[in-house]
């Protein structure tokens, strides 16, 4: 029988995969992909908890997370294009101008 703990542990595993990606990625586009993985993991946790308590609030929050993710992608990709025009690269070591 699949309970809520299965879903939450899976969500934790997916979130840590995304978090590991955020920590080790040096390319900004790949870093964006990792944040998408993290957002999806949180959505699974919301839906699972909402299902467990018979509550629709979990699904509502998942909807708003999806809306935030969509607008984040639109603004973020615009910024990436501006950065690529300025530096000719998306590598964080090239883009970083502050030393320390």
């Amino acid at each position: 029988m699949i309970g809520i703990s299965h879903y939450l542990i899976l969500s934790g595993i997916l979130f840590s995969i995304g978090f590991m990606g955020v920590l080790r990625r040096k390319n900004l586009l790949m870093l964006f992909f990792a944040t998408e993985v993290m957002l999806n993991a949180v959505n699974i946790a919301f839906a699972a908890i909402g299902n467990y308590y018979g509550d629709l609030s979990g699904q509502m929050f998942a909807f708003f997370v999806i809306a935030v993710a969509a607008s984040e992608v639109a603004v973020g990709l615009g910024l990436l294009i501006v950065l690529y025009k300025k530096y000719g690269s998306l590598d964080l070591d090239v883009i970083a101008t502050m030393k320390g």
């Binding site: 595993i13 979130f15 978090f19 908890i49 018979g54 509502m60």
Partner: peptide, 23 residues
């Protein structure tokens, strides 16, 4: 990852929750 698993598993312990907007 360990911290996140603990955080995500925490609602299993909280049993006194009620549905705000029940299905």
């Amino acid at each position: 990852a360990l911290v996140f698993v603990v955080i995500f598993s925490a609602p299993i312990i909280g049993e006194n929750m009620e549905a705000l907007y029940p299905i």
